[in-house]
Computed example of a mutant assay.
Amino acid sequence: MHPLQRLSRLPLYWQVLLINGAVFALGAVALLLSPATVSRQVLVSEAVVLVGGLALVLVVNALLLRRSLAPVDRVVREMQVVELHDGQRLTTPATGPGARLVGSYNAMLDRLEAERSASNARALAAQEAERHRIAQELHDQVGQDLTVVLLGLKQLAARAPAELVEELELLRDSARTGLDDVRRVARELRPGVLADLGLGSALAALCSDFTAHGGLPVRRTIAPGLPDLGPERELVVYRVAQEALTNAARHARGATEVTLSLARVGGNALLEVTDDGRGATAVVPGSGVRGMRERAVLVGATVSVDGGPAGTTVRLVVPLPEVAP
């Protein structure tokens, strides 16, 4: 094995120690073998030789140590700003302890991303299962109870005195409104239309419900010819659109309209939700944005949020599934 390769396998402490020892040993040998001497009163020429030798030692030492220690600073700087979802990795040097350090750092990020993705997948699966259970309870239990109340009020109104009929009708209207709200919440928790009629119809129903229940008018454009994304990708698109519309209703100041579009762009499906309100130039990711990004990562998609005085745009890019030949 080459001596430099053996040196590169040593711990960083011993490499620094050996490099410094070698540099000073070479300096000592040079002084012993050279005719240079130092007078009791140092001459200018002797001072020049000493300063030049010291400078040469420092330069050689710096060049040798730079190759070993520079990657350490790179890793430290990257650790201060790294985000697991951006997928960036450091370039690994060819040899030396820096190569092992950078390689270990990149491998650590890979493991953390894999573990985080698996954890997010389990958490989101549990969340969807809980939403399904709650939606089923709302539909089967609360919805049926309110239906029984409506039927009872109808029968009671038919036998009640005339002066009570109007009050009973008001109660029936309130119960009917409550039943509609329960059904709407159940649809939002478990979008059955997504599995029954497809993504386009589910997004259309989502926009209609959003506008009908106090939200902003939504102008939607769903391009024809979009291939089947599969249930996982379609659920991600639906949930991101749902969260983006909710954020527009909550945070878009002075907005009068929301635009939702879904189209194919190259090998990706592109969802954009844009409001015309006054948004912040620098969007601070909250739990909603983080949730959208965590969902997107599970299917290899990306989410970006661009804000400004002309409105805020949520953009989801979903890779289309590969079609078998």
Rank of each mutant, 00 (worst) to 15 (best):
E46R: 04
R176S: 15
R187M: 09
S304P: 00
R131I: 03
E115I: 05
V57Q: 15
S34H: 05
L168F: 13
P35C: 04
A118V: 04
E166N: 08
L320R: 10
R122V: 01
V284S: 09
S119Q: 00
Y105C: 00
E137Q: 14
E322A: 07
S39D: 15
R40K: 10
R133E: 13
L33G: 15
E115H: 14
Q242I: 02
V48S: 04
I134P: 00
A94C: 00
G215A: 02
T312R: 14
A121T: 07
V38L: 15
S45R: 12
A157N: 11
V16W: 05
N247L: 03
V38F: 15
L298I: 05
L56M: 13
L216V: 04
R219Y: 01
L112T: 10
G152M: 11
A244V: 03
G178M: 12
L298S: 11
R278K: 05
Q141D: 11
R264Q: 15
M292L: 08
G288Y: 01
T221K: 11
C207N: 02
V258I: 10
H139E: 12
L69S: 07
A94W: 03
M292W: 04
G215R: 01
R187N: 09
Y13E: 14
S201T: 11
P224G: 03
V283Y: 12
E322S: 04
A160W: 06
L229A: 13
L179T: 06
N120G: 00
A62H: 14
P71H: 00
P321A: 10
G279K: 09
G230H: 04
A162K: 12
V297I: 08
R187A: 15
N247K: 14
L124N: 02
G291T: 06
R176Y: 09
A162N: 06
D228N: 08
V165N: 06
A47S: 10
A30S: 08
E137A: 14
A252K: 01
Q155D: 10
L84D: 03
Y105H: 12
M1V: 00
T147W: 10
G311W: 03
L150P: 01
E169I: 05
H2Y: 03
S287W: 10
Q242L: 14
T147R: 15
L229N: 01
V185P: 02
A175Q: 07
L54S: 07
A255I: 04
R67P: 00
T177F: 09
A204L: 06
V303G: 07
L156W: 05
P227G: 05
T256A: 12
R220D: 06
Y13I: 08
E130L: 09
V258A: 04
T313E: 06
A30D: 03
Q136L: 12
R172L: 08
P93Y: 12
L12R: 13
L226F: 02
T92G: 02
P224A: 08
V273G: 06
S304D: 13
V193E: 14
L101N: 05
G87H: 12
T221F: 13
G52T: 10
L138N: 04
N268Y: 13
E188T: 02
G254R: 08
G288F: 00
E113D: 14
G87R: 15
E188W: 12
G288D: 00
